[in-house]
Write a protein that binds this DNA or RNA. Structure first.
Lengths: 231, 231
DNA sequence: TATAAACCTGAATATACCCTGAGAAATGGC
DNA sequence: GCCATTTCTCAGGGTATATTCAGGTTTATA
C-alpha cells in the first residue's frame, strides 16, 4: 500500500514530529493533530487509511475517538499508542478487528512495520505481502521468521529489527546514528557501540549460512546490506 | 457464509461499537440500532441474515421484538445477549429454531463463532465450515471437540477459545494484548500473565500427542500456532 | 612505519521475559 | 448447599536479551 494516508494523534509535539518525519520518509501521506476533537474532525474530512492514536489525550481518550468515528459510520483501523506503565489507559477490547497496540517508547521502524501489517490485514489486497526478501535472506514478517538461503535462524527482537531495517535499505550505507534513530526506542540514550555489538551478533548468525558478506562495514560512514549480481 | 448481514440491537453504545467493529472486520455487513422499535423497522426493511439482540432494551424486551417480527412473517435467527444476573434461564425459553444466547460480558471472538454456528444451522450451505483443521489439530466447532492427530483432548472453555483463536491465525505471531482482546471477555481487567498460564495448560495437553511444538513462543513478541511442511 | 581513529568481539552484568506449580476465588452441576 | 472444575493471581527459578566495556585488530593517513 504505497501512499497510504495516516493521521497521527498525539498531544506531545515531540512524538508527533518524530512520527511525522519518519512516516513521511517511509512514503506515507501524513496528517497530524494534538487533540481528540481535531482527530475526529480531520478523520471525517480527510478519511485517512489508518490512525496512529495516543490512548491518553488531553481532551478525551483515544478510545472515545474511535467510538465517535464509528458512530459516524467511519471505520478506520487504528494503531494505538500508550505509555508503558500507565495502568490507567489499559482499556481492554481496544484492538478489535484489525487494530494493533504498541507501548511508548517505541522505535520508529517498528511503528512503520505495524502500520504495514495493519494495512495488509484490512485492505485485503495482497499488493504488499509480509515477505521481505533481499538476496540470500528472506524475512516472514507475520511469523517473525528469518531464513538465510532457506535455513531458519533465530534472532532476538533487536537483532530482528536491525536486520529488517538494513534489508529495507539495501545497497545504501546507513550511519550508526540513523540506525539508532530507526531501530532503537526514541528515548534510548546509550552509545553507538551497541550498534557494533548487534552487527556482530547478526554476522555471527548470518555469515555461516551465506555465500557473501551481506552486512558490510563502510569505515567512517556506517553499515550497508549488500546485494550481489547473480545471487 | 461470507458477507452475511447482521443487525445489532443494544442500548449500550459501547457494546454496539465493540460488536460493530469486530463483526465488520470478520467480514459481516453490519447495521446497528439502540431500541426495539428501530430494530423492528430496520429488520423489516433490510432483512438481515441474523439479529444480535440484547434482551433488556429501554423500550421493550428482546422477546417482544422477535414476537413482532414473527407476527409480520419475518423469520430471522437471533443471537440473544443478556446480562449475567438477568436470569439466563428466562432467555432459554426464547430461543427457538436456530437461535442462541450468550451472557455479557462476552469475548468478541466467541460472538463471531456463535454467529457462524447459527448461520451454518439456518442456511444449510457449507456445513464443512464447522471443522477447523490446521496441521495436527482438528476442531469440530459444533461439537466443541478437539482432536490432536485423531485423539480427542478435553479443554476448558477458555483453553478452547485460546486454541481456536491461535489456529484461526496460523503462522502469525499474536501479541498477548491481541490475545487478551480477542479471547477474554471485554471487561477483563487482569494482566498478560494469564495468557502465559493458559498457553502452558494448552501445551501440557497438546504436546504429548503432537510431533511438533505447535504453539511457539516468540520471546518479546507473542505466541504463534505453527504449521509444518510435510507434516 | 608510526599513530590515532574506527571497528570487532568476548565477557560481564543487570534486567526482562517466560514457564510452571500452588493456591485462592469464582463458577457450575447435582 | 456441596463438590469438582475452572479461572485467575502470584512468586520462584531459569534463560534470553540488552547494554556496557575493555582489549585486540584493522584501516587511513601522515
Amino acid at each position: 500500500m504505497k501512499n497510504a494516508r495516516v493521521l497521527i494523534v498525539d498531544d506531545e509535539k515531540n512524538i508527533r514530529d518524530l512520527l511525522e518525519a519518519g512516516l513521511k520518509f517511509a512514503g506515507f501521506s501524513v496528517y497530524s493533530v494534538g487533540t481528540g476533537t481535531e482527530a475526529v474532525a480531520v478523520a471525517e474530512k480527510a478519511k485517512p487509511d489508518i490512525l496512529v492514536l495516543d490512548v491518553m489525550l488531553p481532551d478525551q481518550s483515544g478510545f472515545s475517538v474511535t467510538k465517535k468515528l464509528r458512530s459516524m459510520e467511519i471505520y478506520i483501523p487504528v494503531l494505538f499508542l500508550s505509555a508503558r506503565d500507565d495502568g490507567a489507559d489499559k482499556v481492554t477490547g481496544l484492538t478489535v478487528g484489525g487494530d494493533d497496540y504498541m507501548t511508548k517508547p517505541f522505535s520508529i521502524d517498528e511503528v512503520i512495520a505495524r502500520i504495514h501489517a495493519i494495512l495488509r490485514r484490512t485492505q485485503k489486497q495482497e499488493a504488499e505481502d509480509s515477505i521481505l526478501e533481499v538476496g540470500e535472506i528472506k524475512i516472514n514478517q507475520d511469523a517473525h521468521e528469518v531464513y538465510v538461503n532457506g535455513t531458519e535462524i533465530e534472532l532476538s527482537p533487536t537483532e530482528y529489527k536491525l536486520l529488517r531495517f538494513l534489508m529495507s535499505n539495501p545497497n545504501r550505507v546507513m550511519s550508526k546514528d540513523q540506525i539508532l534513530d530507526h531501530v532503537w526506542e526514541y528515548d534510548f540514550n546509550g552509545e553507538q557501540g551497541i550498534v557494533e555489538s548487534y552487527v556482530s551478533y547478526l554476522r555471527k548468525k548470518i555469515d555461516p549460512l551465506s555465500k557473501n558478506s551481506l552486512i558490510q562495514t563502510k569505515r567512517g560512514v556506517g553499515y550497508m546490506f549488500r546485494t550481489f549480481k547473480e545471487d
